[in-house]
Amino acid sequence: MIIPLEHFLIFAAVLFVIGLCGTLVRRNIVGILMSIELMLNAVNINLVAFSRSTSLDPVTGQIFAIFVVALAAAAVAVGLAIVIALYRVRKTICADEISLLKW
């Protein structure tokens, strides 16, 4: 049985929106970073699904997805390092409490 393309796209869109909502409602910065990972995974599903159906070359999307995975890991490494640096000077990782800079 072949799962039609629409199912993948709807699943990816739902996952992306869940991630986007997570970034908006989460208060813990690590939680926000995890929500961003969800959004990137939604993109990966899209890429791989399109790679099988509409792509001119069947591997393009899969290679792109591998790049996205690698880059997400790099971005999270930098992100957590920055969060630790913030924690050292401010003793908090709650997004509501980092409000030195405004207007």
């Binding site: 796209l9 992306f16 959004m39 990137l40 939604a42 993109v43 899209n46 890429l47 699904a49 399109f50 159906s53 509409t54 792509s55 001119l56 070359d57 393009t60 999307g61 792109f64 996205v68």
Partner: peptide, 14 residues
């Protein structure tokens, strides 16, 4: 990235 994935799907190329 989500935008790129949709454009890729529609055009089949990067």
């Amino acid at each position: 990235l989500y935008g790129i994935s949709l454009v890729f799907g529609a055009t089949g190329s990067l």
